[in-house]
């Protein structure tokens, strides 16, 4: 039996508080923003590492983006992952959810498939939260989303997860292979293990594939493969608290406050 293979999808994102929108081009200006691993993906990394600790197997990181993302992804190796596959090609740029999930699915296909694929709940930049389900559809596998806990039965080849619901949860069981999305902030990611750091920075830890390597349909990737178009983009001004003191008689103030509450919701 081949080794149990897990993949965790990780995105590198600019810090939300440091991106700007160029007033003229109306494009996102990320040049001055420092990069980080998408915070929700940190929960996915932890659940993946924890699952590997419990059940064994190989755990790879899959990401899409420019080569400059590589050093950040190596953080995941230092945390305990085995290998990185970075899908990098100019042609992948400008992808919406459809093109992104297609490309990631091609990456997993090229890796020889996976028994279990972990994703964060959503990305801090795009915040669509639609990648896990879309990826599962392309791969034609089942999905367990918004999990706070996961266990496996490798004999029965099933995954059982605790999926959060509004005010509650449900325990779901589904056959492997499966895509799992991990509820944001549900796992505290372990810190970098410094004894792994030198190893993590060795060249051979990273495999880079471009569109040709993936045998991807050129019409289905990047901006070309994205049916949606952005017509307008604007930066919402950084939140400054208004600091408005409500004055008047007690009754009047309470009524004023009630109106404010209703208007804000």
């Amino acid at each position: 039996m081949p080794e149990f293979h897990m993949v965790v999808c990780v995105k590198v994102v600019p810090r939300s508080d440091e991106i700007r929108v160029d007033r003229e081009t109306r494009l996102l200006d990320r040049r001055h923003a420092r990069l980080e691993l998408n915070p929700p993906d940190m929960s996915a990394l932890e659940m993946a590492l924890n699952t590997r600790d419990r059940y064994g197997g190989k755990l790879d990181i899959l990401s899409m983006g420019p080569l400059s993302f590589e050093p950040l992804l190596r953080v995941g190796l230092a945390m305990g992952c085995d290998h990185i596959v970075l899908l990098s090609d100019r042609a992948f740029g400008g992808a919406d959810t459809l093109a992104t999930t297609y490309t990631l699915a091609k990456g997993i296909e090229k890796m020889g498939g996976a028994d279990l694929i972990f994703c964060g709940e959503e990305s801090a930049d795009g915040a669509t939260g639609q990648v896990p389900a879309g990826l599962a559809e392309w791969l034609n596998v089942s999905q367990l989303t918004l999990l706070t806990e996961l266990s496996l039965d490798l004999d029965k080849q099933t995954a059982t997860g605790r999926r959060s619901l509004k005010g509650g949860y449900e325990i779901l069981e589904t056959p492997l292979p499966c895509v799992v999305s991990v509820k944001n902030a549900s796992q505290e990611p372990r810190f970098i293990n410094f004894s792994r750091k030198a190893w993590a920075y060795e060249t051979e830890r990273v495999t880079v594939w471009n569109a040709v390597d993936l045998n991807a349909d050129p019409e289905s990737i990047g901006l070309t493969g994205s049916p949606t178009t952005v017509s307008e983009l604007a930066r919402v001004p950084v939140r400054e608290r208004k600091r408005i003191k409500l004055e008047g008689e007690a009754m009047a103030k309470a009524e004023q406050l009630a109106v404010i509450i209703r208007d804000s919701l």
Partner: peptide, 27 residues
Amino acid sequence: NHVEKGLPSLLWSVYWSENPWSQPPSQ
């Protein structure tokens, strides 16, 4: 990897934001 809950988050805060209080470096 046997540390008290909350402490890895403290270190990640220093790692990503260069302060232990999870505050934006730009501020």
